[in-house]
Design a protein around this nucleic acid. Sequence first.
DNA 1: GTCGTAGTTTGACAATCTTCGTAGTACGAC
DNA 2: GTCGTACTACGAAGATTGTCAAACTACGAC
Lengths: 130, 130
Amino acid sequence: MPRSTRAVQGRQLEHPEAGQIQLEAVLSALADPIRLRIVHDLSQGHEDMACIAFELPVSKSTSTHHFRVLREAGIIRQYYEGTSRMSRLREQDLQERFPGLLAAVLNAQDARPSPDRDTAATPGRDRVGS
Amino acid sequence: MPRSTRAVQGRQLEHPEAGQIQLEAVLSALADPIRLRIVHDLSQGHEDMACIAFELPVSKSTSTHHFRVLREAGIIRQYYEGTSRMSRLREQDLQERFPGLLAAVLNAQDARPSPDRDTAATPGRDRVGS
DNA sequence: GTCGTAGTTTGACAATCTTCGTAGTACGAC
DNA sequence: GTCGTACTACGAAGATTGTCAAACTACGAC
């Protein structure tokens, strides 16, 4: 089919509605260190981030996969801005659907024994000068 | 080989210490409907339950598998009593390690099964906020 | 001792997941 | 138009997971 007949914004992305978010899907999506890291980074003040800004230790196609899992689980919302795909945590939707869950996970993540994946020598946390 | 050189109590079970419980393991363990059901049942007043008491829709060996996943993740504690293996939620350990996490999951589970959420929007049922 | 109960262990299978590389698309800049 | 950037889609390889049946072990009762 002619996919170019889409709206000018074109690349629309599917998101579950807040009320449709499934608990198993959320837990399953968060049960991966890379996705947990994405969620954690998103929660640290930066409202919207492009995929490239995360500097994940995986290939681009794997990144796409992880972002899609998070999006389809209802954890993040994504939209296009130029060639970039911006991501944002759906904190309010999650809080509404599963009160306290996201906060508990984020809090738990901070309290965890850090495996020093990024090397502890980055207190300022220079997350890419995108 | 001397397989019977085990301790007389024999069947000892490995459990992670409270401080060693991993967030990913917990989330991963809870991201399964059968295990979620086990945890839910354990949280409903019955402190200790034998595996057989759950009436899970799977075979015995699959049950064993799920209980082991929960135990190795640090979510339940198991001990033998006669021929039965009793299970108990490690609520205190989990609360200590990841405050609010288990409570949020259990609460989320109660608010969950609503495939008709579109129609009624469930006004007063699941209260939002803490 | 024998027998039944409760659960484990092993091995197998299919399904799913994570990862990658390659090829492709949409957009912005030139 | 061409080019580069940012990302996607499409397999495919490898690992993990959920499931089962069959054989086994530990315990209690008889």
